[in-house]
């Protein structure tokens, strides 16, 4: 992959960093290896394209075929091959395989499009690439899952093209190191605290503290055990009222308050939110 990790923190990068921290804690220096380059910088275009495997060289051919709907990205949601290198002036024929629902070919910047997505196998769309450069395209319905491709027109970056590579080693930004560091510190803090306690006690005998021991001794001397609780005297009620004389008016007002609230919510939800908004299903 030609993606550049850059200043962003990806989950994979973070995990890699966390693993690196563990290695570093073990006293082994983690050595980052340089990210592989495919010679052409697609600027992350292929970072979520599962079937991208470097730039396929088709120079020297007047007409190049790219299949639309080959296996990839979790279904038949890929262009095959995803990246092709052609000579300027080459006509690229996109040919539908009929797999993976309806597809289309839409240029990212260069204006060409095959129109509405179609499914029929054997559908073709042609475009002639005259200008040197990278022409990125995608399938509109399946852009989100990574159905993307690119045509590299001309010799740019050729020679160094070794079919891509995977970024290895550790390349984390400052923020990522901070995150990984604080995570490591959080995990290590109980251990550090335990070590601190052990150090402070100095390996002395364990048991109740000086104060507790004194208290226990006093209890032993008195020889009465803990003090017993005394029963509180039963007080006579000042006034006694009958059942009907008791009026919980506070509770009643609370109930009436809730009633008003429920009725308001009911009216708002059913008549305003449900019936009052736009068309409704009537059949």
């Amino acid at each position: 992959m030609s993606e550049d990790a850059g200043p962003t923190v990806s989950r994979r990068g973070l995990l890699r960093g966390a693993a690196g921290t563990a290695i570093a804690a073990g006293g082994v220096a983690a050595v980052g290896t340089a990210a592989g380059q495919s010679g052409v910088d697609f600027d992350g275009w292929f970072s979520d394209v599962s079937n991208f495997d470097g730039v396929v060289d088709r120079r020297g051919q007047g007409e190049v075929t790219v299949e639309v709907g080959v296996e990839g990205n979790g279904d038949y949601w890929a262009f095959g091959p995803a990246a092709v290198r052609v000579d300027p002036g080459t006509t690229v024929v996109f040919e539908w395989t009929g797999e993976g629902s309806a597809h289309n070919v839409v240029a990212e910047n260069d204006g060409y499009s095959s129109g509405d997505p179609v499914r029929e196998a054997g559908t073709t769309f042609e475009h002639t690439f005259e200008e040197t450069g990278i022409s990125k395209y995608y399938c509109d319905p399946h852009l989100a899952v990574g159905m993307k491709g690119a045509i590299v027109v001309g010799d740019m970056g050729a020679g160094a093209d070794a079919g891509g590579g995977s970024p290895g080693g550790i390349s984390l930004s400052e923020g990522a190191w901070l995150l990984v560091g604080s995570l490591g510190l959080a995990v290590a803090s109980p251990l550090l605290f335990a070590a601190f306690l052990r150090y402070r006690r100095g390996g002395g005998p364990s048991g109740p503290s000086e104060e507790t021991r004194e208290q226990l001794q006093r209890v032993d001397e008195v020889d009465q055990g803990p003090p017993r609780a005394e029963e509180a005297p039963v007080e006579k009620p000042e006034t006694t009222i009958e059942h009907d004389e008791y009026d919980p008016s506070g509770t009643l007002s609370l109930v009436l308050g809730y009633l008003v609230l429920v009725v308001l919510l009911w009216v708002f939800m059913y008549f305003v939110e449900f019936l009052g908004r736009g068309p409704t299903v009537i059949g």
């Binding site: 279904d75 629902s101 309806a102 509405d116 997505p117 509109d140 319905p141 399946h142 989100a144 899952v145």
Partner: peptide, 12 residues
Amino acid sequence: ARQFQFAPGTSQ
């Protein structure tokens, strides 16, 4: 309705 569009609805 198919992955990931309504025909019609999405394109036109």
